[in-house]
Design a protein around this nucleic acid. Structure first.
Lengths: 107, 107
DNA sequence: TTGACGTGATACCAAATGGTTTCATATATA
DNA sequence: TATATATGAAACCATTTGGTATCACGTCAA
């Protein structure tokens, strides 16, 4: 079973969400990502590990480099979670609509 | 400007996400929510405060009670965030498709 | 082969987080 | 009015988190 916890946890930090946005533009090595943030490479590496644990990115080896890329499938837990509530509100609206129509049959 | 940070932060904790799911069934007072978790009312109250700060729930006073309810609008930051990436992938697919058609004009 | 480069991993630290207990305050009720 | 109920808030604590510095290791290039 897929647990959604690592995914939501990974998204809780603004630096990590910014990393995802940048990876949307292009895959990047750890060093490249680090250049875009005012923190050490070690700190960025930790964030990338959390993102990887959350399934939001994949990492492939290229020589001595490690290339990070978005993993579209990793976003599924968030999508599913959101759909649960949106579906719920859709049903609520449908119920409300039918209730109104029931009380106002003269449309 | 709406900052998405409090929203994502609120969603990082499994207890808080479970509270949201329960509130989808019915609005609840703090005491009612507390009854569903194995922790003190004070702890639950803290979680509700975080959810409120994140705009995910609204709280109304009813006598000496405080009734917590889902706030559909509070989910917008997550929806917007997700749409950014899904749109991105849609564009990628479109680009890929047109590139393929360009190289295979004999369809 | 010998550095230089890119990364992994660990120890360490301050601050944030998630929980507790305790007490104060406001409202409902006998 | 006196008491019980529902909540608010603060002090406190252990653990997690997000950062640092440092060193070890594999790979590329002269």
């Amino acid at each position: 079973m897929i647990t959604e916890q690592p995914t939501f946890k990974a998204l809780a930090d603004p630096t990590r969400r910014e990393i995802l946005r940048q990876l949307a533009d292009s895959d990047m090595t750890i060093a490249q990502v680090s250049n875009n943030f005012d923190m050490t490479r070690a700190a960025v590496k930790k964030h990338l590990t959390v993102l990887s644990d959350g399934g939001l990115i994949t990492v492939r080896t290229r020589g001595r480099e490690r290339v990070n890329a978005l993993n579209p499938e990793g976003f599924a837990p968030v999508r599913d979670w959101l759909v649960f509530f949106e579906q719920f509100w859709d049903d609520r609206l449908t119920d409300l609509k039918s209730a109104i129509e029931k009380n106002q049959p003269n449309d």
